[in-house]
Structures are given as C-alpha cells and as structure tokens.
Design a protein around this nucleic acid. Structure first.
Lengths: 178, 178
DNA sequence: TGCTTATTTCTGTGATTACCGAACTTACTG
DNA sequence: CAGTAAGTTCGGTAATCACAGAAATAAGCA
C-alpha cells in the first residue's frame, strides 16, 4: 500500500504517541494503518507499507487482538489472514479504556483491599490508614462510574459529553427535582 | 523512617503500577511515601526509607514537581528542602489527568488539526479523510468535556460520579424538561 | 572567605524492551 | 503425501530507560 503524505504523518504520529500510551510503536502504527485503510489488510501488506519485520507484524497483531482492537477476517479466494479494526472512534475508545482499567486500576484496587482487610491495619498511623481508605473508596467509585459510562451507547455518551458545560446545572436540576 | 509492612506493601505496589502508568518506579514510590507520610519529608529520609541513591531521589523529586504532584516546603530551623504531596486523592487525580491530557492528547489534536488543514487533505481516500475528521472531533469533545469535569469541585465531582447509575435517567430527564 | 552541608548534574552500567532474521510449525494445494 | 505458502516462535542485537556513584555546584555558616 502506498501511503499519502498525510496518512504517513498520521501513522508515524500515532506510533510515537503509542509509546507514551504504554504500547509499542509498531503496534500503534499497525493499528493506525488499519484504521485509515478501512478494509481488511493482510500481514504482508503491512510489512511492505511500514517496512518492519514479518515477525514483528505477527506479534503486534496478536497483541492488538488481545486488546480486542483488531480482528481477523477472511477475503473470498484468499487463504491469508486479513486484519481489520473498528472505524468507530467511540468504540475504540471504549475498548481501550476498559482494557486499561483492567490492567492499571484493578490490580491496585485488589492490593488496597488487602491492605485494609489486613489484621494489623488498625495499628497503622492514622494518616496512612485514612489515606489508604480514601484511595480505595476513590478507585471503587471511579471504577463503578466508568463502568456505567462505558455501558452507554456511543450516541448517548456523545450527547452526554457535549452537554459538558451543563453538567452542573443538570446536577442541580436533578437535586432540586428529586 | 521505618515502614510498617502495610505501608511497604502499598509503596511497592504503587511503584510497580507506576511503570504501567508510564512513570518510573522510584518516582511513584516516592510519591506513595509522601502520600502516606502526610508530613514534609526531606530527601535523605527518602533515601534511607526506600534504599535508593540520593541522585535518583533528586531527579525523581524534580520530575514529581514538574507534574505538580509534589511541592517543596521548609521546616523551621532546618535548612534542608522538605517535600510533600496533597492528601486529597481527588486533587491528585485531577492533577494527573490534566497532565496526561497535556502530554498524551494535545500533541495528537495538534497533529490531526494540521492533517485536516493540509492543502491536499481533500485528495485523501474518503474513508481516511472521514476517519481523521472523526478522530479529531472526538478528541476535541473529550478534551472540552474533561476540562469541564476537572473544573468542578471535588465534592461536586464525587456527587456526580456517585450518581453513576442514574446518568441515563438524568439525561432523559433533562431532555424531557428542556 | 574558607568550611560544611545540601542539592544537582554527569557518566557509566545494568535492566528492560523492541525488533530483526532464522528456524520452525501449521495449513493449504496439486 | 510431497511441496509451498502462511504464520509463529525463538535467539540474539540494538535501542531505550532506570539508576548508582562520582564530580560539580550552590547555599548556609563561622
């Protein structure tokens, strides 16, 4: 696949950002490529387009699948695996947030719970005790809340976000009403 | 400072998670330590408590300050710098989200804007063109929305998040009402 | 203005991660 | 059931990052 300058810029940038988001460059580049392509692409085409090793593409695709960002599809009359990603940016966002929550929040909630449940937790310094409990409560609230949000339809979510500025009024309205 | 087993568990875990959150272990450990300590701590005490090099503590503290998570304070009669962090988990969260937004979202929004503004953007594939625009719109909405949210008082935010399950009803109520 | 203590910067090393190329496995095809 | 194409796994290397220790700088103090 021949990339236009703009597509190239997009893919390279996405790759750079990937490293800041905790995934490797190739993986994000491949994802960006599939996203722009908007059609099933086979591994060899990715190799040629991005100039990376076949093995690298293979592992990155596996990783992308484990993130549920990419799935394998087949094209009639072609026995090679083809890969594609969702074109719905909201859905992608949802997937990423869910996965990051699982990897970056849940282990901490576990640890905090075990801290609080520990036999000698009450013997901790008051401050420490209090802060650990606060942190746990915060993370649980955050988790529950984002679960709620992520369960919404993209459209509802979008509407909600666009309401943005009015959040406070809504809250007040709701409190006044109920 | 002698750490209790629980404090140690907390700090070690925080350090591990830090690496997944894109900051290095020492930096998150120091932050966790200051958080539990709940009082100004000087660098040498951090060195002893965490068993890391003085230089490492120095750079990590600088980094924590650049994230605005830690600030320098002074203790009467002691010429050493002391360091402390906020004990308000909501505030910490706000700071982190703001900073990550700046580092992980803004550069992308810039790039996307430049893509779209580019002279030959219309000559792109329809799909690619559309998806780039969608992505930009999404990120702008997300940015604006989180700015709104972050401007709220912790208490309001908490109330809002605890409302969680009722988000949809609120939305519907609001639409029905206005 | 030297003396001491606190802090930062620099340099090298060890650890981790990303990636290539080769060897291997699996699945189709004639 | 060869032969070939597709896909995966593995071993080594290159690149990056984290950190210790030494050297340099800055800030009080006599």
């Amino acid at each position: 696949m021949k990339l236009t300058p703009i597509a190239e810029r997009f893919i390279l940038h996405w790759g750079e950002m990937g490293t800041r988001w905790g995934v490797n460059r190739t993986m994000s580049q491949i994802h960006a490529l599939l996203y722009l392509a908007g059609r099933p692409v086979h591994a060899e085409e990715i190799v040629e387009t991005l100039s990376v090793a076949r093995s690298n593409v293979s592992t990155s695709l596996k990783e992308l699948q484990s993130w549920k960002l990419v799935k394998v599809v087949h094209v009639m009359g072609d026995r090679r695996d083809h890969f594609e990603t969702s074109g719905d940016v909201w859905e992608l966002f949802r997937i990423i947030v869910t996965e990051r929550k699982r990897r970056e929040l849940e282990p901490t909630v576990d640890t905090l719970r075990r801290c609080v449940a520990s036999a000698d937790f009450e013997r901790e310094e008051q401050t420490a005790q209090h802060r650990i409990k606060e942190t746990l409560a915060f993370m649980e609230t955050l988790t529950r809340w984002s679960d709620e949000m992520l369960r919404l339809e993209p459209e509802t979510l979008m509407k909600l976000m666009k309401t943005g500025a009015k959040i406070q009024q809504i809250l007040r309205g709701k409190n006044a009403a109920g």
